[in-house]
Design a protein around this nucleic acid. Sequence first.
DNA 1: GTGAAAGCGCTAACAC
DNA 2: GTGTTAGCGCTTTCAC
Lengths: 306, 306
Amino acid sequence: MVKKALDRNNYLPNQVARSLKAKATNTVGIIVPDIRDYFAYVIKGVEEVLSKSGYSIILADTNEDSEKEDLYVRLLHEKRVDGLILATVSTDNSALKLLGRSAIPVVFIDNLPNLPYGIDAVLLNNFKASSIAVEHLLRFGHRKIAVICGDQRETTTKERLAGYLDALEANSIASEPDLIEYGSFTVDSGCQCMRRLLDRMVKSGFTAVYVTSYKMTCGAIKALKERKVSFPGDVSLVGFDFTDENKLFSPSITSILQPVDNIGRLVAHRILAKIHDSDAMDKTADIPQKILLDPILEIGESVAQV
Amino acid sequence: MVKKALDRNNYLPNQVARSLKAKATNTVGIIVPDIRDYFAYVIKGVEEVLSKSGYSIILADTNEDSEKEDLYVRLLHEKRVDGLILATVSTDNSALKLLGRSAIPVVFIDNLPNLPYGIDAVLLNNFKASSIAVEHLLRFGHRKIAVICGDQRETTTKERLAGYLDALEANSIASEPDLIEYGSFTVDSGCQCMRRLLDRMVKSGFTAVYVTSYKMTCGAIKALKERKVSFPGDVSLVGFDFTDENKLFSPSITSILQPVDNIGRLVAHRILAKIHDSDAMDKTADIPQKILLDPILEIGESVAQV
DNA sequence: GTGAAAGCGCTAACAC
DNA sequence: GTGTTAGCGCTTTCAC
């Protein structure tokens, strides 16, 4: 009766107390290397699903720094998030080891760590992405196809390169070291890789380039413009994550796209399943699974017949 | 002594219990209409500052829905965030009224609500942004300058329009209703506004257009391409929030830019000041203040001499 | 039905 | 120093 009076006024239940009692915070942590990258799109999908289930998101941006990532993994554990979505930048995260036997559900996105136990993940089929990109170029008659890769330690890089090599091999084309450039996932690095490829263009004779990340695609285009190499006139180009839904670019860029909305929604559903399963008796969601999603090939005008 | 053993193993203090006791969660809520918009950049700045001070971010995306915004304002209060950063989409938010006498510090960004008491905000100087845009066009000899505005109820729209009108008046140019289009902050709306302007181009004779939001700029460019109106050949264009730091666009777009990093950092500092002040005796941070930041005019190739 | 009490895990205050 | 205790605001249990 006293309570009813409060209700009508401005009583707000204290969720902190409730969380302490219930041992559940109705909160999911998301750790990403850079919120300005495509992760903003993934988070949008995650938030759409989680908010409907009454969960909030604690967002952490590591700025591509694995130490900061470590700290956040620990902090979010202390904050007792019910689940964690992690786009890790490190292969052997020290805080992740701690996570290993911890009860808190984790689902990985974007990149996989090297851990001695089964992990859950929602990922782009990176291998297939590269196959599709290369096969598209092959269809246009290209045979000397260069590739610009990111950090060799990351699983995304390894798989994207593997898909490229496999597609070449499947079409009886020998891969050439001169056509492969490694860098890191930044605009500058993409730019430098492209410059190096152009420097030995006469020798290597490539007619097309496939760039395997968004920032590197920006850098590669920058280098092409800087050297006044026209595309698709002089070089055909397939980019990555280069969304341009309104077709504002000219020439529009042919690019591999990730199904960002679906990644977000699926990872949210997956984490919810794991959270609810940890309360349940039948632990089917406890079986670690990697969910691979198909890439989308957005066809633009940056690829020409050779 | 027993504790020390735990420490060495994997003991993680329970921040939920600590928060309940301390009546402070070390958490700040951020509510934005769409994380995929320029807010991602603002959040990056916010997170950079807050993480150094040991605060986490609870992120809420309202999807431009004022009802969802209401729910989030309430939920974050229940979660006892220590402060709230709010990019509101509504002018008279019912949950905001509740906020009025509430003790929790709020700082507004992007857009101001209509509230009967002083509020804190970190904002772009929208008036000045439009003045700069219009004056840039005037310097290139344009006299018939069209403008594409967003939702008339939002303060951002009002101020951007006011700056446009003021700059014209200051240069003894009469404003013409035919040159002003209102819409909403979406790509489609920007596209439609541009089409309507083009439909009466012969009559109105405009030579330049100033678009006052990012999504609308995309829409306007889309409409120009669709109608095969060349820019800056047939029409000069000044956009808004159209970041293209790598100059990948051709022609590159002349655009008003917000100092997104600084907005993020300042709003974070402001919210921290208010949080700490509510514990303190001298309540200087309690004096509501609007911090206005200068826009940046990014000069591209989309404006030509008339 | 309505009401009292215990306990979630921490911290601060107080006692030894 | 070291140890005990009360209480943050909620939920659940159990008593009435």
